[in-house]
Simulated assay, not measured.
Amino acid sequence: MPSSHWIDLARDHDTGIETLHAHFQGHAYDPHWDDSYLVGVTQQGVQQFHCRRQRHASTPGQVFTLEPGEIHDGTAPCAEGFTYHMLYLDPHWLSGELSGLFDHAPDLHLPSFANTLQTEPRLARAVSQAFAALHHQELRIVRQSALDQLLARLTDRVHWRRRPDPDPRLPQVALRAREYLHAHVHQDVGLQELAVACGVDRFRLTRAFKAAFGLPPHAYLVQLRLATARRMLAAGAWPAHVASDLGFADQSHLGRWFMRAYGLSPAAYRSRCSNLPD
């Protein structure tokens, strides 16, 4: 990691929420997606990123909110870089908590954020207080109270969307390919194999998949494996085992991809999230 970058990561074991405090100058991380809800506040500088096919620029005090699976990157357009803190909210935890807060939460729906960037001081304050309580491992009652305050502010900005049933607007070949990749994430899937499984040639498959999900199949599979690697590492799995289990050539191959997406090595991530030694 360049000396101009620093990352401080922790994990709350009661809720599974990860907290991140970081600073980047220049390029921060490559396009990737997470399987958590991301809620954070830019503290200093300009945090520029692409998401939902738009370029965003988050400035100090602004709140950014991303849903699981949304592709995003990060860069600092200004020489001084940017600093932010953020919570990775576990989807099962968030859905359960919000369902309890809404009197009539619809069945078979997931919480969703209407806007990627928001300028709302009370929400920003709630995010920062929840981050501080969890990141610094305050008393359980303090952590729970801070999270309740955050959820109370988020309910004003959350709407509900149906669970990801097959979207009729997406080509069936892309949906079949995504389902195949999820079912074979631990295997060395080839593009020709994937095309045969979907009943099309690989060129049509790649065009349809990228149009539907924003990434070609090979890049999507890498992101899927990285998201799976995060869960395995947080549970205490060794990086070498994770690399072998997920089809990376070796541990260093996993490490290069992991660093590009998250700014940390797999070993550092494991140590900080599992409280186990490297």
Rank of each mutant, 00 (worst) to 15 (best):
P121K: 04
S128T: 08
D188H: 12
R231Y: 10
E138F: 05
A146K: 00
V196N: 14
D167R: 12
R207I: 03
D103Y: 09
P166T: 02
D165Y: 14
Q129K: 12
A152Y: 04
A126V: 00
R143F: 07
V189C: 09
V196T: 14
L117E: 05
L123W: 12
E120L: 04
P216S: 03
E193Y: 05
L151C: 13
L221M: 03
H104Y: 15
H109L: 10
D107P: 12
V200Q: 13
G199C: 06
R169S: 14
P217Y: 01
D188E: 13
L108K: 15
A124H: 08
L147Y: 01
S145M: 13
Q118S: 15
F213E: 01
Q137K: 14
A133H: 06
P106Y: 03
P164I: 03
A177D: 11
L181A: 03
W160R: 05
F209Y: 15
Q137T: 10
P166G: 04
H104M: 13
P111D: 03
R153K: 11
V142S: 09
V222G: 02
V127T: 04
R207S: 08
H182G: 10
F102Y: 15
S99I: 03
A126S: 08
R176G: 04
Q137S: 15
A124Y: 05
G100Y: 04
A208Y: 05
T155Y: 03
A124M: 09
C198W: 06
L191V: 06
A132S: 07
A174M: 11
L98W: 07
